[in-house]
Design a protein around this nucleic acid. Structure first.
Length: 461
RNA sequence: UCCCCGGUAGCUCAGUCGGUAGAGCGGGUGACUGUUAAUCACUAGGUCGGCAGUUCGAGCCUGUCCCGGGGAGCCA
């Protein structure tokens, strides 16, 4: 019994092959009286392989009537193509129809808008562009593990369901089995004691607090998985469900954190350039003409490091008109970040040592007592791709920060414990996986780099 | 959530001054001995996002709702 060969294998074949079996979906079919050309794709690579079906083949009439989207199985001979445009082609000896595709198949042999393709997210990976995106997404997922594992980081599976309503990174989705039409109440409030976990439960907004506990036992660790934010954000850079990589290093400070962030981003881009060259070419050609020079620029230069205070100073003296004024103590606006990365430096910028009042409670207070050891890596077009910090490892300082922010200390008992027993300096960051994919592909809407995007009021598929 | 732009054939769009609808692609049928998003001929396909209003007459003007996009805030 002949085994199926993937199209990528056939196209890279070193020699002709007498007998091959391949299966895939028809991209286009060009029919003439005596034979037809079929462009077949099986998802193994961007390229199609050309199949020649002679009219002497038994079911030729049926085959010639097939259209874009149909699935077939082909037995034939791999031969050098006499035509221009491809090295190899398959001369079919038999074609089996696996699944027809009626004429209302929504993907046509032409370019569609991303907005339209989003409405058929179950079929869009059958297009060239989306096939390429999701092959790159898979490769990059692997590269993330490869990079971190090669540096002895251990992957920690932090929970998706969490009992902390205090992870400090935005609104959370509730997880409940309570009957929403008949919610049990106690003293006017929801009685969570009757809920599944006996307390309020949510979907995680970040694995950081959990992964820190493992950092302070296994050393260098990371999480990589989905996170959830119930924010009513309607932008091309936000989703309710997205994937995040959060490395955490023991015995490390903010400098180490910034170094890891830069090395990581540069590694991932290099990896894509080497391992996804064919797919990447599509984006350089059709999505962003400057993609290659942008990526080359990122991997060949150190990221600019600039303290928040210096950044504010630079922005104030820039002479640039901003809609929002630049004031020390308030967060940088999108327009400010864009000015730094796109106009002034024209490359990734790491801004560090932010005012403590605009950052999370767990970030380490600097000696000036006004700023914390936080850093954001900003890239052109996308903005913040990494947000990280050295963590506050001093028990008293952490306790004070929790109280200053009017959080309930009791909620953080286990987190505080890690500072009580054998605390050490440590640092980490969160890298938005989809934002990384946007950077690498030049895609400008985050909904187009995840298989089934979840955003406010959108839960189809 | 706020601001701006848009919604016309299956898809991408045009539609002038308010006078009842157009193209390309796709589909169907036919032609074609090597095509490359093939080509050529013919052909079918429309509640102009919904509702209400102004007008003799609305795709076009007004109101409102729905949907999509861009920008902002929040952040990754």
């Amino acid at each position: 019994m002949l085994e199926r060969t993937k199209i990528i294998g056939l196209l890279n074949s070193g020699q002709a092959q007498e007998s091959v079996l391949l299966k895939g979906w028809i991209r286009t079919l060009r029919e003439s009286k005596d034979f037809s050309f079929i462009e077949l794709n099986d998802g193994s690579c961007l390229s199609n392989i050309q199949i020649i079906v002679d009219s002497v083949v038994d079911n030729y009439k049926e085959i010639a009537k097939l259209s874009t989207g149909a699935a077939i199985s082909v037995t034939g001979e791999l031969v050098e193509s006499p035509g221009k445009g491809q090295k190899w082609e398959v001369r079919a000896t038999a074609v089996e129809i696996l699944g027809v595709s009626p004429d209302d198949f929504p993907l046509q042999k032409k370019r569609h808008t991303d907005e339209y393709l989003r409405t058929i997210a179950h079929l869009r990976p059958r297009s060239n562009k989306y096939g390429a995106i999701f092959r790159i997404r898979s490769k990059l997922s692997f590269a993330i593990h490869k990079f971190l594992q090669e540096r002895d980081f251990q992957w920690i599976h932090t929970p998706i369901i969490t009992g902390s309503d205090c992870e400090g990174a935005g609104e959370m989705f509730n997880v409940t089995t309570l009957d929403l039409d008949n919610i049990p109440k106690k003293a006017g409030a929801v009685d969570y004691e009757q809920d599944f976990f006996g307390k309020q439960a949510s979907l995680t907004v970040s694995g950081q607090l959990s992964v820190e506990t493992f950092c302070l036992s296994l050393g260098n660790v990371y999480t990589f998985g989905p996170t959830f934010r119930a924010e009513n954000s309607n932008t091309s850079r936000h989703m309710s469900e997205f994937w995040m990589i959060e490395p955490e290093m023991a015995f490390a400070d903010l400098k180490d954190d910034m170094a890891l962030g830069q090395e990581f981003v540069q590694y991932l881009i290099k990896y894509t350039l080497e391992e996804c060259a064919e797919d990447l070419e599509l984006f350089a050609k059709f999505v962003d003409k400057n993609l290659m020079s942008t990526l080359e620029n990122i991997i060949n230069n150190d990221f600019i490091r600039f303290s928040y205070t210096d950044a504010v100073d630079l922005l104030q003296k820039s002479g640039q008109k901003f809609e929002y004024p630049v004031v020390w103590g308030s967060d940088l606006q999108s327009e400010h970040e864009r000015f730094l990365t796109e106009k002034h430096f024209k490359q990734p910028v790491i801004v560090y040592d932010y005012p403590k009042d605009i950052k999370a409670f767990y970030m380490r207070l600097n000696d000036d007592e006004k700023t914390v050891a936080a850093m954001d890596i900003l890239v052109p077009a996308i903005g913040e791709i990494i947000g990280g910090s050295q963590r506050e490892e001093r028990y008293d300082m952490l306790q004070k920060r929790i109280n200053d922010m009017n959080f309930d200390e009791a909620d953080y008992w286990w987190y505080l414990d890690t500072r009580k027993y054998g605390t050490v300096p440590h640092a980490g960051f969160g890298l938005g996986f989809e934002r990384l994919l946007m950077l690498v592909t030049g895609i400008t809407n985050i909904r187009d780099v995840i298989p089934f995007p979840r955003t406010p009021k959108h839960l189809e598929f």
